[in-house]
Design a binder for these strands. Sequence first.
DNA 1: ATCAAGTATTTTGTATACAGACTTCAGAAC
DNA 2: GTTCTGAAGTCTGTATACAAAATACTTGAT
Lengths: 228, 228
Amino acid sequence: MANSRMSDEPEMEIKIERQSLHDAILNRLRDMIIEGHLPPGARLNEGQLGARLGVSRTPLREAIKFLASEGLVELVPSRGAMVKEFGAKEVLNMLQVAGALEQFAGRCAVEVASDKGIAAVRAMHDEMLVCYRRGDRLDYYKLNQAIHTAIVALADNDTLSEIHARLQTRLKRIRFIGHEGPEKWASAVAEHEEMMAALEARDADRLAKILGEHLTRAWERVKDGLES
Amino acid sequence: MANSRMSDEPEMEIKIERQSLHDAILNRLRDMIIEGHLPPGARLNEGQLGARLGVSRTPLREAIKFLASEGLVELVPSRGAMVKEFGAKEVLNMLQVAGALEQFAGRCAVEVASDKGIAAVRAMHDEMLVCYRRGDRLDYYKLNQAIHTAIVALADNDTLSEIHARLQTRLKRIRFIGHEGPEKWASAVAEHEEMMAALEARDADRLAKILGEHLTRAWERVKDGLES
DNA sequence: ATCAAGTATTTTGTATACAGACTTCAGAAC
DNA sequence: GTTCTGAAGTCTGTATACAAAATACTTGAT
């Protein structure tokens, strides 16, 4: 917290038209949590945060309650909200559920997705490969997420997409930790290649198998960076 | 809405110790939505609701934001919250996801559940049969839900339980509609019987198959009561 | 009578005020 | 030196107040 600024002027002021202030606060808080600016276990001081964002406590508290329902923060009575900490078991559980959801999504996708939709995912995949060869980790990471989201979207199931997105959000914070080395990175790329092939072949069983393994590998890549 | 009371006295006042007022409001709102007291599409008037519950708008709004994140209500900018309406496709999607989650839960459960845990589910099942033979729909319904929740809990995956519970909550409102006739009720009971057998035999594939079919049947039981 | 425009009322969104609970820290007792 | 106690300060939880937007209603014109 050495570089956190505690001055009273709202430097990061959120100035949006009235309607979407709620969403603006929400996104900002999410980012602060995901990027570790608000570390796990940290208390969310409503006064400070409000001053920092340039809003009063009322809409801020509403946004915090929203985040609590998303599972990013934890509400402790009379003690406010704190950034939720995830132990190893919880991360494993989240990855397992995400895997199950993606497997289900994959099975639906090969049935209902249009060729165009699959081609769009292929395009993202190719772009991701460019980032990989360029060594551009951040863009690679973003496209990686986007591809998984896109595959889920191919299943044409809003409920599924929403739940998956929520899990992804929680996991984002973790995956930032998983700075895998070059060899693990390469294997992840290879898995993605297989994934695309199975999707384009509309082979449900193969796709489900790969997606399942992909998440298992993801666990192996991040588990060492976790405590307890 | 003929019997809704609009008087200003807070008849349903919530008087709880300071800490859990938030949860109290939350549960009351959830109940009002699930039981249809707040019908789908209805606007949540903060003034009226606050007066009805005996709380000011501030904590009420926080609870509403929480429910919005749960997907029970929809936030419309400058127009407040309204009870979310689910079309046929959305209900089907929710059932499909719930099915996928339960299948995954079942596969985990047969691996990690203790015999004691499975026996507890069996006890609930037997109790449910008593309700069935007694024709007690309400208690049957509650035990039915509890059994599904319990099976998911056997998987020992908090994330899974939480997501499943959230979906169940959304579906509760729908299932109230599905007043199946005696023959369909009997088939549902038969499916539960098979479910228990597969669980006790720790036969993952069979359990998953039955759970999948069970949710498919649930869809057939309720789909006629839905529009578009 | 129907429709349009402008005004009044209602309702949401945000800020502020205040009461109660928690935290912290100083000082006394052991 | 450690631990208990309590008072000051901080923070959360709730209510109220006010501004902006939406809704309802009245009035007038066609």
